[in-house]
Write a protein that binds this DNA or RNA. Sequence first.
DNA 1: GCCAACGTTGGC
DNA 2: GCCAACGTTGGC
Length: 146
Amino acid sequence: MSTLKPKTMKKDKCYWLVKSDPESYSWSDLLKDKSTNWDGVRNYQARNNLRAMKKGAQVLFYHSQTDKAVMGLAKVSEESFSDQTTNDERWLAVKLDVKNTFKKPVTLELIKSNKKLTNIALIKQSRLSVMPVTKDDFDEILRLAQ
DNA sequence: GCCAACGTTGGC
DNA sequence: GCCAACGTTGGC
């Protein structure tokens, strides 16, 4: 009996979105730092998503609160490791490298009004801070950013 | 600043 | 294991 699980999971684990309140860590901070540990996540679902992020995966960087817009693109440069900001073994972090700033930030308003993006987790699960994005949704957001 | 939508905690 | 109370996030 062979397993039905495909050997490569390319399509699944390649695209993500992370949220940040720009008051605590902003896109311009990442531009300045070039690279940062994405840590401090204290939610199991978000943690599980961090664990699934593979090196090289593309990550949309979203500003919550004041801006409410996807600001740019980052990339996973180190797969999950234990979160250094706590002694609690449960929590994980990944390393993100800055990739490029969007020509136009893609606002939540625009995403909400886009018929192709009605199922995006950003809208469906508004409180989740690390979430997977489908290839189609990812491509659409990049298109809107042009 | 308010509040809806969650997620967590703790008493039972 | 249920659920009320509480805390947090994030959109408005």
